[in-house]
Design a protein around this nucleic acid. Structure first.
Lengths: 159, 159
DNA sequence: TATTGTTATACTCTATAACTATA
DNA sequence: TATAGTTATAGAGTATAACAATA
């Protein structure tokens, strides 16, 4: 023990993080491709799916700007995505009586049903994978994912 | 303890997985947007960056088809991405002497340097986040990410 | 004046299909 | 015939800038 503990910890940190970077980037790329492929079966793109989820999460007729912000997108992009979802009858725009510039966006019944169906198929897949872990490991993973999510969201907002 | 342990474990599994699904999908979407924003500073898109990394990982002048497969893309898509990288002098196509239909794709010096620079900035960001964890937690996370990566890759390949 | 949302425009990614050159 | 790679084409997502309607 001739070295202080902090130095050996720092060395481990760099090594761990280098391995994590490799795994994280390949993981997020592969997960994105897999999700896109699964969504093809429902004739949805990833941004369309994320938008359906955001509308559901925000609830109660969110505005286009709220929606764009939640999806980390500019409003012109969201206009196009919502247009295509509306054409398919999955979402609706409704006038906002208290501000005539603004609209409420909400899921139709068909949109709700499609979202539930996709979520169920995703849950099944995740259960197959994470069923291999012990309850303690699952809890640890959940905690770590939430830590990482929060740190990414705060980076996204503070720019 | 009137219920057998397996049932209570299964109930926990569904709950954990539902929370994981929520966190995972928001995480991968947010991470993708953050990466895209960071890559803008280097005037690269995400597929271009993933392609540079794949060329580096595959090494020794991989072919267009190997590259397309590694990035989970059809070769026509890879043609466009490599075209744009080549225009910027980040990659090179070289004739393959043993098969004149095929080409070797490799990083130029500029491509190598840019890749190193981006990777260094990513490492710094990850160290800031994961430095909060203990070495044991980092090891656990690494193991879990690798488990998840393998399961996703095998799903991607078996379709 | 400022804000909400859309339209116009340009570029990249993506897949499919048709094609050329080579094996 | 089969394979490696490109070209042609079409659609979706993305950002920026200009715009209309409303606040």
């Amino acid at each position: 023990m001739s070295q202080p503990a902090t130095i050996s910890t720092d060395l481990t940190l760099s090594e761990d993080v280098a391995a994590m970077q490799q795994a994280l980037e390949r993981l997020s790329w592969a997960a994105r491709r897999l999700l896109a492929r699964q969504l093809e079966g429902f004739d949805l793109t990833t941004p369309q799916y994320m938008t359906l989820r955001a509308i559901h999460r925000l609830g109660a007729g969110c505005s286009m700007s709220t929606l764009a912000q939640a999806a980390h997108q500019v409003s012109a992009t969201m206009t196009g995505i919502v247009d295509r979802l509306a054409e398919r009858g999955l979402v609706q725009r409704q006038p906002n009586p208290s501000d005539r510039r603004s609209h409420h966006v909400l899921l139709t019944g068909a949109g709700e049903r499609l979202l539930l169906q996709i979520e169920a198929s995703q849950l099944e897949r995740l259960e197959r994978i994470f069923g291999k872990l012990s309850p303690e490991e699952r809890q640890a993973m959940l905690r770590l994912m939430q830590l990482y999510l929060e740190s990414i969201l705060s980076e996204l907002e503070h720019e």
